[in-house]
């Protein structure tokens, strides 16, 4: 053992003591009820002390650099490959029985293919076809529009100047059903809304037709809604057509009427499948 240069031992011991202090600090902090910042700092100090002690040790007390290890290369020694091949393909080796191997391959392929079938169980247990599920929403004729807390909505409950998120009654959590109601001046419509309107009251799907985020940002006065995810914006005066950003299709409309009880209700599903597009979307 070569004698340590002066001071090195002391620095290493100090580092490890700091580490022990950090660990103790963590235990005490935890015991006193815990405090995230202190816990983090204590553990960081504990590990940093450990790291610094080991690093000094590794740099100052053991030889660094100046060693060479031979590299035998990865090209196999002459004849080795051939010998391995011969050993594999000895006269009674299984790989020589091509016919049997073919049958074995058939069996394994069949088994592998059969093993894929249970994957189908990962599909919805009620066997809904994806395309149908994506096209259909809980909206159908007579379903009342309710707010997020489940209250049905009268036309008068939709204020001017803002949008109200609406849901089909009884299906507040459905992923494809959220819509919004907004009151616009009918004379400013440049294109009639897809779902029609009741004196300027229109209802559209809330889901962006680009990637399905809710278009929750209403740009007051312009009649535009904006998606916070990828900044697609839709012009509600022009049939909710996309006017900027990556969305390519208008927000589907929801046809509505006032029911005999005075509350708003749907007269059909959305005018198109809501949300992001897919292969068989009509």
């Amino acid at each position: 053992m070569t004698p340590a240069p002066p001071g090195v031992n002391r620095r290493i011991v100090c580092s490890f003591l700091v580490s022990a202090a950090g660990a103790t600090g963590f235990a005490v902090t935890y015991g006193l009820g815990g405090q995230t910042q202190w816990e983090g700092v204590c553990l960081a100090v504990a590990f940093a002390g450990l790291a610094s002690g080991l690093a000094i040790w590794g740099r100052r007390l053991v030889p660094t650099g100046g060693y060479v290890e031979e590299h035998e290369g990865l090209t196999p020694p002459l004849g080795e490959q051939a010998m391995a091949g011969d050993a594999l393909a000895a006269p009674d080796s299984p790989i020589r029985r091509r016919g049997l191997l073919g049958a074995l391959a058939l069996a394994l392929t069949a088994l592998g293919a059969a093993a894929l079938f249970p994957l189908r169980s990962l599909l919805p247990w009620d066997r809904t076809r994806p395309v149908e599920a994506l096209k259909d929403t809980p909206w159908r004729p007579g379903v009342r529009l309710v707010t997020a807390d489940g209250r049905p909505l009268r036309p008068a409950d939709v204020p001017t100047g803002t949008v109200v998120a609406v849901f089909p009654e009884g299906d507040l959590d459905a992923g494809d059903a959220p819509a919004f109601a907004v009151r616009l001046q009918p004379e400013r419509f440049t294109r009639p809304p897809a779902g029609g309107h009741l004196d300027g009251l229109v209802v559209h799907s809330l889901l962006c037709t680009h990637a399905g985020c809710p278009v929750r940002l209403y740009l007051h006065g312009t009649g535009r809604v904006l998606c916070p995810c990828h900044q697609s914006s839709f012009d509600l005066f022009a049939g909710a057509e996309p006017v900027a950003g990556p969305a390519a299709r208008p927000l589907p409309g929801l046809p509505i009427e006032v029911g005999p009880d005075g509350f708003l209700r749907a007269t059909a599903d959305f005018t198109a499948p809501p949300g992001a597009g897919f292969w068989s979307r009509p």
Binding site: T36, G40, L43, A44, V45, F47, A48, L50, A51, A55
Partner: peptide, 17 residues
């Protein structure tokens, strides 16, 4: 080992602060 401890120290410092 020192590098391991450095990495963990930095992660805990970030995680705490």
């Amino acid at each position: 080992l020192a590098l391991f401890a450095w990495v963990v120290a930095v992660l805990f410092a970030l995680g705490g602060l």
